[in-house]
């Protein structure tokens, strides 16, 4: 019995001494830091995705507190909600930012962009990009090795096995832009999510002449300019042999979608019944 008592007493003593030691060391070596940093960091999602352009959430918190406002780097993942809370912590007014989503601007699926060679290397777009123009021959198109999927911290982008193209899950995408930075061909663009997640965009970025582009891919934008003419809001411009829709001007009338001869303009999340379809003019309707 006495052994038991000795043991309990000895362990308690050791515990008390260790606790006292720890307490005094913690006091002695305390690092003075703006307490707001901890508060801001607690508000951030903590995924350390790098979407803000900094190494992690903690770094963003430090940067925000150091600036004293939220006009600098911001958290695209937490979006308005989080940034408003942060603004109140550091005592400034928050201005609403438009939520964004990643959009893949290539429609060169296996069916549309026939393979003319066969890649047999590591699954890295960066490497494939350094090796050749791509299996289809299009030097602007998606290589399909999935660098974007590996960059995504939220599991929001995946390669569709039937088309070989990345597909973005609107629900999961936080618009952090990690995939866009990972893509060696800058195919992925961050666009406004749009009302009810509806958006119209040109799904091609190739800068080659129409005939060359068409030879590599059936879905390529050939720079014909029909959409530019049909657009009533002057939202579409033609640069480097492909069209681009300015999402601030676009009113989602979808006239361009019907006009496009190659189906390069995609309208997503519109109710399917409204879409006029001709065999030539297949519109990619998600959900």
């Amino acid at each position: 019995m006495s052994i038991l008592i000795y043991a309990v007493v000895a362990l308690t003593l050791i515990g008390v001494i260790a606790a006292a030691l720890l307490y005094f060391t913690a006091q002695k070596f305390k690092v003075e830091e703006d307490e707001r940093i901890g508060k801001v960091a607690a508000l951030l999602p903590g995924a350390n995705c790098g979407g803000c352009g900094l190494a992690g959430c903690r770094n963003l918190a430090e940067a925000i507190v150091k600036r004293g406002d939220i006009d600098g780097p911001s958290c695209p993942v937490g979006g308005n909600e989080v940034m408003t809370k942060i603004a109140s912590v550091i005592g400034v007014e928050a201005v609403a930012a438009v939520p964004k989503v990643a959009v893949v601007r290539c429609a060169g699926s296996f069916a549309a962009a026939k393979s003319k060679s066969q890649y047999d290397g590591i699954q890295s777009c960066a490497y494939a990009n350094s090796l050749f123009s791509g299996e289809s021959g299009c030097r602007y198109g998606c290589l399909g090795c999935g660098d974007c999927t590996r960059a995504c911290k939220f599991d929001a982008i995946s390669i569709d096995k039937t088309t070989g193209l990345p597909v973005v899950d609107d629900e999961k995408c936080t618009g952090c832009g990690a995939c866009a930075r990972a893509c060696p061909r800058s195919i992925i663009e961050l666009r406004n999510k749009g009302p009810k997640n509806r958006r119209v965009f040109v799904s091609c970025v190739n800068a080659e002449k129409g005939a060359v582009a068409k030879k590599n891919c059936d879905n390529a934008c050939i720079g014909c300019g029909k959409c530019v003419k049909v657009c009533p809001f002057e939202a579409i411009s033609l640069d480097k042999n492909h069209a681009y829709i300015d999402f601030n001007k676009c009113k989602m009338c979808r006239k361009c979608v019907e006009e496009c001869p190659t189906g390069a303009i995609h309208a997503v999340n519109f109710p399917p019944k409204k879409v006029v379809e001709t065999p030539q003019n297949v519109v990619n309707v998600e959900n």
Binding site: S117, Q118, D120, G121, Y127, L131, E135
Partner: peptide, 8 residues
Amino acid sequence: SLLNVSGS
């Protein structure tokens, strides 16, 4: 057949 492309 399709040419195989890979690094050396």
